[in-house]
Amino acid sequence: MLLKGKWNGHVYRLERPLGAGSNGQVWLASRGGAPCALKLGLDAADLQGETNVLASLERGSRDRPSFLLDADDARLGGRDVPFYAMRYVPGMPVRKFVRRCGSGAFKAAGGHLLDRLAELHEAGWVFGDLKCDNVLVAPGGQVTLVDYGGATRIGRSVRQFTEIYDRGYWRAGNRTADPAYDWFAAAVLWIHALDGERLLRLTRSLPPQHRHPRELMRLVRSHPTLKSMEIWMRMALEGRFGSTREASRRWRECAAGLGGGVPDGIPGWMAGMAGATLALAAVAAVLWFSR
């Protein structure tokens, strides 16, 4: 099937569908013989929101090859359909990648994922709807983020999210876009990828008032592979990194078995417990000195 842009005039040949996002379909296409991915939107304003994010990312990265290639409308089935063309990056969704490459391979991919997120955060955006389906991994572990429908300017309310990845759902914070929102989702993503059945069972059986990051940590600690990343997972769920670059560095340390300790600083939900511990310590000190 051929498709011609109404404003810019480029012609694309649609080869085969790659997948369906929340607001459109992605096709493998070619333009002048070169492959690209083409997203056909359902709604012009909706797709434009996504195009705007991609365009603003381009500006911050003149030195890298362009990701967004074209944005236009095409006549399809008697009506104008908005679309954009982007660089085609081969890869498979995270869960498929883990099934095919073994659960050890996730450590390399996890580092690359955090690098992608760091670039996005440094450009002033949060990805928002981070989940297994929106992360493509190549066999070597290189990561591409797809479906920017949830991408949100830092400081605004997250435009689109998936419940079980959402820190608001787990009562671990609000839905204002900040880098920690994506760290939280990244931690859930790896639990979902490696231990999906138990995660889904947990979300079905847990009453809402008991949703809490400690339930997720319970899964992490009792899983043979995730357990090795326990320190990183805890810091991600508690939003304890100084920056996404630091999150990425600590992921690699953890993956290499150099976990190190959790730095000082107490998340809100632990503050009460820590207070009690401090009080106990003070009592112990008094007893010691009065001997």
Binding site: W7, N8, A44, A45, Q48, G49, T51, N52, A55, A71, D72, D73, D80, P82
Partner: peptide
Amino acid sequence: SVAELPPPKRAEVV
């Protein structure tokens, strides 16, 4: 509607 605007203008309005 917004859909009828040329892409650069559409980007701005959206």
